[in-house]
Design a protein around this nucleic acid. Structure first.
Lengths: 216, 216
DNA sequence: ACCTGAACACCGTTCAAGT
DNA sequence: ACCTGAACACCGTTCAAGT
């Protein structure tokens, strides 16, 4: 499912020719580099254009304004994360629910951890650029994938799966972000991840319907 | 415990005279208003000064630069939240652990929800202003308060209370932020809060040492 | 058709001049 | 002693001129 981009933040032209794809990639790569090396308030259209080897004017052919550039960068990133979660979810259909939760925690955690500098930079860049639409689209994709996975659990049913699912995702995504922003030492970080997974499992065990709850 | 402010972000002068306090409050209030009404990238030093009824030059007597203003605003806010958590923690010393967790979730939730527009605006403003020091100081205060509270629980002991505590705080704070940024409908928001509290309780029940674990 | 970069409007910050 | 706001450097964005 494609992300729906609000008009005012949409990229100006789609890269139809091979050269454009290269230019666009160079711009994205330059943006990440400037973001990491100089930070958000030194991220200048001129600096990005310079590093990408194009003129400012050219950049404005691809993006109507600076925010649209950051928006597109986030979009790419969230699409990557959503792809990985969708894949993990379909690969774990039918396994016990505890394994599902572990897969979910570990997949999201790994996606955020692999390039944690980029993750943190994007958390910062994601601000004040009307990213509600991005977040909503991302949440929708993930909700769908995880609900589908959890429905196939052989060992658990729930009175209100959508609520359980929303809670679980809020807890996982929120905790990961929190741990990131606190810059915990790597060892402690991993311990917290394991505790998080355990917490999700306890919760699922407790809210799962028992046989006594089964409809007659 | 006072927050340790890094020098380059410190406010320029302390409000020693009554008039200065008024001016400073006016600047803070103006900042919140501009933030809510116009958003972060329309938050201009001139606009804030205008609304506060002072000149830009005067504002620069109190804050060495724009970031310091936003930093100070966040500092005030986090101090308020930390105060409330500390109070709740000392008021709940000695009660069963399930009640402690509920108090913690509800206090933090309430502090963030009461003026949710301000909360969201500050989440956005908190970016790229070296808020690591702020977050660290806040985390330290809360860690201390909650660990002290949990140690007095009559019905639970833990093999590694610091880890359990860190996990719990990451989950609670992270989830609250996530729920905020997703702008869930108010009814669902409350349901998720209740689920969150339940999840924390399941977790604590599971990781608490049983009598069998007791040292002989 | 597409790219360039000087030019324009606006913002953060300073500091000489005012009280 | 403290406040003011014009002035300066820099950034986002445009568009006439170039290829």
């Amino acid at each position: 499912m494609a992300t729906t981009t609000p008009g005012h933040l949409a990229a100006r032209k789609k890269p139809l020719q091979a050269r454009s794809v290269v230019t666009l990639d160079a711009i994205f790569e330059a943006t990440i580099q400037v973001l990491l090396a100089q930070g958000l308030n030194r991220l200048t259209t001129t600096r990005v254009a310079d590093r990408a080897g194009v003129s400012v004017g050219t950049m404005y052919q691809y993006f109507p304004h600076k925010q649209a550039l950051l928006y597109a960068l986030n979009e790419r990133y969230l699409d990557m994360v959503a792809d990985r979660i969708e894949t993990a979810c379909s690969q774990h259909a039918g396994v016990p629910i505890a394994e599902m939760v572990d897969a979910l925690v570990n997949t999201y955690w790994a996606a955020k951890t692999e390039r944690s500098d980029v993750t943190r930079a994007l958390y910062r860049a994601a601000v004040e650029l009307d990213n509600d639409a991005l977040i909503a689209a991302f949440a929708q994709r993930v909700d769908t994938a995880t609900i589908a996975m959890f429905s196939t659990a052989p060992d658990a049913r729930f009175a209100d799966l959508p609520l359980v699912n929303t809670t679980l995702l809020a807890v996982i995504f929120g905790s990961v972000r929190n741990v990131f922003e606190r810059r915990l030492p790597a060892g402690l970080e991993n311990d917290v991840r394991d505790q998080l997974a355990q917490m999700c499992r306890s919760y699922l065990n407790q809210v799962a319907l028992t046989d006594a709850d089964a409809p007659s």
